[in-house]
């Protein structure tokens, strides 16, 4: 009788071992199945950063004095004016929503750049950081926008350089998690 019991118990143990082995095998399979695939998002996000900054920089503004009927490009004209006349009176003055004429730096910082980025990246709840600096004076940026991307997985638009009389201006847009 004890011999039969021992055999029965051994066979139960055998079955339990089989069940445990199969469970472990399934766990392994599940682990491999849930492994991250190629991250397409990173590629798309980088292109998003590049295309958005390109679009922002090439957008033109109408109705700025003294050339009311002339389209003024953000990078080529307004940012250039801001870099050269940051501490002085700017050549161009563009209007805010309430009709007030603003210095080119103030217009870019407070009106145009926030409006463009709000309509684009903000509308898709995409976190970003935009910065335009004089390369010789990086601690005092000309224009900034966004909540920042410090410590986050980030994609960059790359630097958009602009030669001005005050030196090289570098603009960059970071898009992050």
């Amino acid at each position: 009788m004890s011999r039969f019991l021992k055999r029965g118990q051994m066979e139960m143990v055998g079955l339990v071992i089989i069940v445990i082995l199969i469970t472990i095998a399934f766990l392994f399979l599940t682990q491999f199945a849930l492994n991250d695939k190629t991250d397409h998002r990173t590629f798309d996000r980088k292109q998003l950063a590049v295309s958005t900054l390109t679009a922002v920089m090439r957008t033109t503004v109408l109705g700025c004095s003294p050339e009311e009927t002339e389209p003024l490009a953000v990078e080529e004209i307004l940012l250039d004016d801001c870099a050269e006349n940051r501490d002085f009176e700017s050549v161009y003055h563009c209007r805010s929503a309430d009709g007030q004429e603003l210095h080119s730096c103030q217009f870019l910082q407070e009106v145009l750049v926030p409006e463009l980025l709000k309509k684009s990246l903000d509308s898709y709840k995409q976190r970003y950081e935009f910065k335009s600096v004089l390369v010789d004076d990086p601690t005092h940026p000309l224009i900034t926008s966004g909540l920042g991307c410090k410590g986050r997985d980030t994609d960059t638009s790359g630097e958009f350089p602009l030669n001005t009389n005050k030196g090289l201006v570098s603009s960059v847009l970071l898009v992050c998690d």
């Binding site: 957008t59 033109t60 109408l62 050339e67 009927t69 002339e70 389209p71 490009a73 463009l116 309509k119």
Partner: peptide
């Protein structure tokens, strides 16, 4: 179709 009368610069809008 929208150009600066004097500069000839072309209007560029921001689009999606």
């Amino acid at each position: 179709a929208v150009r600066g009368q004097f500069s000839g610069r072309v209007k560029h809008s921001f689009g999606q």
